[in-house]
Design a protein around this nucleic acid. Sequence first.
RNA 1: GGAGGGAUGGCCGAGUGGACGAUGGCGCCUGUCUUGAAAACAGGUGUGGGUUUGCGCCCACCGGGGGUUCGAAUCCCUCUCCCUCCGCCA
Length: 425
Amino acid sequence: MLDMRLIREEPERVREALVKRHMDPSPVDKILTLDEQRRQLIQGVEEKRAERNVVSKDIAKMKDQVERQAKIDEMRQLGDNIDAIDADLKAVEVELNALVSELPNIPDPDVPVGVDDSDNVVVRTVGELPEFDFEPKPHWDLGPELGIIDFERGVKLAGSRFYVLSGLGARLQRALIYWMVDLHVKQGYLEKYPPFMVRGEILYGAGQLPKFEDNLYKDHEEDLWMIPTAEVPLTGLHMDEILDEAQLPLRYTAYTACFRREKASAGRDVRGIKRGFQFDKVELYTFCRLEDSPAEHDRMVSDAEETAALLGLPYRMMLQSTGDLGFGSHKTYDIEMWAPGCKEWLEVSSISNVGDFQARRSGLRYRPTDGKNTQFVHTLNGSGLGLPRTLIAVLENYQQADGSIVIPEVLRPLMGGETVIRAEG
RNA sequence: GGAGGGAUGGCCGAGUGGACGAUGGCGCCUGUCUUGAAAACAGGUGUGGGUUUGCGCCCACCGGGGGUUCGAAUCCCUCUCCCUCCGCCA
C-alpha cells in the first residue's frame, strides 16, 4: 500500500513507477479525484456531527418540554443528513481503497528498467560451473532411476505437479531443511513455526489479496487460506502492533510448506519438481527501521548466499528489472543456481526489500525512542532457499557418471553419515 | 457437537442511556525534595483521521460489523476470539 500523502503530493513519482512496470498510470488521476472528494465529505459530516454532539448535551439539561422536543426533531433530521453523507463517504472510500490497494510499490532507483526477467542484471557469479566427462542427466531422470523421486505415485495421489520423495531423497530434503534452519539461527534469526493456513486479512496485509486470489488455495466454508509462502504468516505476526524502536530489528526464520495454484503459469515447467502446487521453503524475514532496510537487505542477501556457498553449489546473483519485480517489492535480488541436467538457471531464492508497503497494509509500526510519532517499519523477506529447486541443484551438480549422487559434505552428519545416493538406496 | 461465562487504555480493573476517551491502581515520563537513590508529593502518559503557518480546534475508536436513540462503553442483532463444564475424536 502506498502512502496516500505520497500519491497526493508526488503523483508524478507514482505514475512514473507504473510506467516503469508497464502498467496503466491512469488510476492515479481517479485516485486524486476520489481523495479530494473524500476529504470534502469528511469535513461536511464532521461539522454536522460536532453540532449534534453539542445540541445533544444541551437536550439533556433542557426543562422546557416544547423546546426540548423541537430540538430533538431538529437533531433527528440532522442525523438523517449525517447518515446520507456517511453513505456517500463510505462509497468513495471503498472505491478509493480498491484503487490504491492495487497500486504496486515504487521501484528503487537502482532497479533496472526492463520488460521481463530477461532484463534482470547479473550482479555477480560465484563458484565454478561443474564440468562433466559424460552427459549430465536432468533430475527427472536421475530421481526415478535412483528410486528417490516417484512422479507416478504423486500423480496418483494428487494429480499433475505432485510427486513423492522416497528413501534418501526424502531424507536429503529433510536434512536440507534442518541444516538451513540451523544455519539461519546461527546467523541471528529467531526460528518460528507458524500456521500454514491464515485468515484473509493476513493475506491482504502481505499484499497477496485481493490481487492474487486466483493463485491461492482456500477453504470455501471458512475464511482460511493455505499460505503461498512463509512470508505471509511472518508478516502477519506483528499485525496491528506498535513495537518499540529498541526491539528492532526483528529477524525471523521459518520452515513451512507453501501452496500455490500456479494459474498464471499453467502448462509451464510441468516436468520435474521445479514448480509444484506444494513445496517446502525456509524463509528469512526482517522487520527494521526505515533507515536500516538497505543494510538489512544486504545482510539477508549474504546470509542466503552463505547457504548456497556452503552447499558447494555455483550460483549467480541477479538484480530484478522492473519487468520482473514483484507487486509489493521495492528492490529484489534473485539467487539462481545452475542445473546442468535441465541446463537452466533455477531461481532458488528471491530476496526483497518491501519498504513500508506491507507495513502499511498490516499496521506494523514502531515508536521511536525519542517519543515522536509512530513510524511504519520496513519489512524484508527472502527465501533461505526453496527446497525443490535446491534439491534439483544438488542432484544435478553432484551426479556421477554411474548415476549416483554424492551428498554435500555439510549434510552428511544429518544423513546418518551416508556419502552417496545409489540406485536401490 | 451441547450448556454457560467473558472481551474496556502498556497491564490490572470500575463503569447498565446524557458532564465517560472513559474513576481508581500498577507501570512509564517530568518536576519538587535529596550528596545520590528510594520514599513522598505535584503534573503528564492511547491510536487514527480532518483542519491550521503555528498554538490549537474538531471527528472517530471501550473485540469486529450492523441496529435502536436527539444522544450508546452502557440497550438489541450478528460475527470472531477466549474461558468453564458435558459429549466425541486424534
